[in-house]
Design a protein around this nucleic acid. Sequence first.
DNA 1: AACTAGGCT
DNA 2: GTATAAGCCTAGTTG
Length: 425
Amino acid sequence: MTDLQDKAEKMGIKIPEITFEEINEQIKPVLRKMEQAGIRINVSYINELDQKLSSRLKELETEIHKSTGTEFNIGSPIQMADILFDKLKLSTEGLKKTKSGISTAASELKKIEDTHPAIKLILEHRELSKLISTYLRPLPLLVDEDDRLHTTYGMETSTGRLTSSEPNLQNIPIRGTYGAEIRNSFIANPGMKIIAADYSQIELRIVACLAPDKLMIESFQRGDDIHAKTAAQIFHIPLEEVTKEQRRVAKAVNFGIVYGQTSYGLSQALDISPAEASKYIKEYFESYSGITKYINYMIDSARKDGYVETLFGMKRYLPEINSSKHYIAESEERMAINTPVQGTASEILKLAMIELDKQLDEISKKSGKTARMLLTVHDELVIEASSEIAQEVATATKDTMENVIKICVPIEVSIGIGDTWDEAK
DNA sequence: AACTAGGCT
DNA sequence: GTATAAGCCTAGTTG
């Protein structure tokens, strides 16, 4: 029994008798089945979108060249910085630097969006060229004779998460103007449905239990909206009076906390002053004192032992955590905070997949219909099932994911059924 | 191959 | 004085 498991059992986590090595062995055949199954895409729909965006891209290119008065390669950050900051003399104040010069990343360009009409065009150009070159062009070339994409899952990550490559189906767009359209081109076979199941705030629930943090645990047990609850805490107002904007801020703080985010980082993410960000983080730590202790405990134990571990015993060594270069040490401190949380979440999803795989086989056998897992995206599963049994499969999926392990708070899964990946979400 | 950028959880 | 949010994969440019 590891330290973390001992701590966890005291907090009412019932840990299944299995190690992370065994989980990783048992997940392999499941992943091979998923790779073989593949997911169907609507190739002609993607090609149409490609054409549409490509023609807009050409327009943008012309407009940008006209607006800047130079025919340069918009895809070259070097040329871009040259045009914006040397030729057009746009202000570089407050912009990040890269190794080679001023950053032209979207997050930086947004800061000077109103100082020149070309910037908005450049940002749109970036968005479209990303979608075209990474998704719309390559994906149709990778389908099999049934229009299905087959990814390859990998397991060699430092936290135990899975990876997906050639193609990566774990970073298919969902946000932005075209996210929904792209996800709508991931479709079920005729007579079948796509089922998407997501763990809701799994990492926050895990850290609440690992910490343990009394207030956060109570909030999850009551079924509160955790981001609103956090907003109420950091703004010192009643839960009912939390505004959307306050909730958005609180969500970012909750999110950042599992990454060991600093006030500077939060200020960048929210576009607020470091002083304001610092105030929120301070209020957060005062409200959730268990989380504060967790962070200190993880850093201390990593300094002492040289590693941290997940609930099922996967170790991550952090040899530089005592480095005298403090940004090196701080980087590993953040890993010490994040790895047990991210790694445990990953183990829980893998356990659920191992169990669900058996159940789907049973349902298929019993009904004579298809039910198969297709994708895993860190806290989400995508399944394809015959329409007749889709509801049954969805129920079994939710039940399995929510009950594969008992932790000190309820685990919640949101689930949807549709003809496409977007519709199922 | 290094660097920059940007897509996802 | 330097850096500042965890973990991935892919594409385009540059030298």
